[in-house]
Design a protein around this nucleic acid. Structure first.
Lengths: 144, 144
DNA sequence: CTTCATGCAAAAAATTTGCATTTTG
DNA sequence: CAAAATGCAAATTTTTTGCATGAAG
């Protein structure tokens, strides 16, 4: 844990859901918070740097309970492993098909619901695939 | 194959991509077309009714090549196995969180791209989760 | 008759489970 | 202390691969 503030913040997330505060859970949360979106393997690789003896089973179990408790949110992307992020109200993502980076988007997605009449809506999930500005030059070069 | 028309239609999809027309591939395509969205297991279960000796490996290989060729499209849904559908221009889906049914939506999703400036866009994928009209009564009953 | 697809069995990868031990509140 | 979480190993499930055989163009 880097500092007291982040420790308290992450700890509270768990306490609010009546989940015990363990070193492993704090590591998982802190890495997901730091990197935004991680899949199980990325998480395992990063955790073991600081904490070499965590069990993969523990990560699976914790991801699962945190999903059930709404602490985490899963982001399923075409052609990649499912990523996990801290739950927020926004669920729009931009995925660069070149570098695979994922960016959170703070856009209003409710416009897609105009004239929607198939039922009541719980949430809207938007994935935009494309080429990010950083990768744009690489592509242009390939084509020329 | 039900009839000549559907046979020709599905066959053409394969021919256009220089893929050999096999009984197995036609079955896969015809079931996906009939049911709209199927995951590997559903596909396997339905195929083996008509054609008991297909290998699961064949299904995996074919789904994979058809994805590469753009014939199929994968729909990754929260809390469920990835489903496959015939590729179309629209990529908006409504998923009922009660009965898990998936409906294709013919809505305009480009409105989410207003003011979008993170890069060039290749495709937009929209998932709307909620309760379909058919399941609405069941829910109201539970609450009362 | 050449190329590609299939099916099998085996291998590899991903995920889940049971249980003894440890940690948290 | 009691309840819950961890870690390990084993079990299960999911997906991939190699290769001999068979079918398609």
């Amino acid at each position: 844990m880097k500092n007291k503030v982040s420790y308290e913040f992450l700890k509270n997330i768990l306490v609010k859901k009546n989940l015990k505060v363990t070193h492993q859970r704090l590591l998982i949360l802190s890495l997901i918070r730091q990197f935004g979106h991680l899949d199980i393997d990325e998480l395992y690789a990063k955790i073991t740097v600081d904490y070499p003896y965590i069990s993969l089973a523990t990560i699976y179990k914790n991801i699962s309970t945190m999903l059930e408790n709404g602490i985490l949110n899963e982001v399923k992307i075409g052609g990649a492993k499912t990523k996990y992020e801290l739950s927020t109200n926004s669920h729009a993502h931009f995925i660069c098909i070149q570098c695979k980076k994922i960016e959170d988007l703070d856009i209003n997605v409710d416009c897609v619901l105009d004239n929607f009449n198939k039922g009541s809506v719980a949430s809207v999930n938007v994935l935009i695939y494309g080429t990010c500005n950083a990768c744009q030059p690489k592509i242009s070069k390939k084509l020329s």
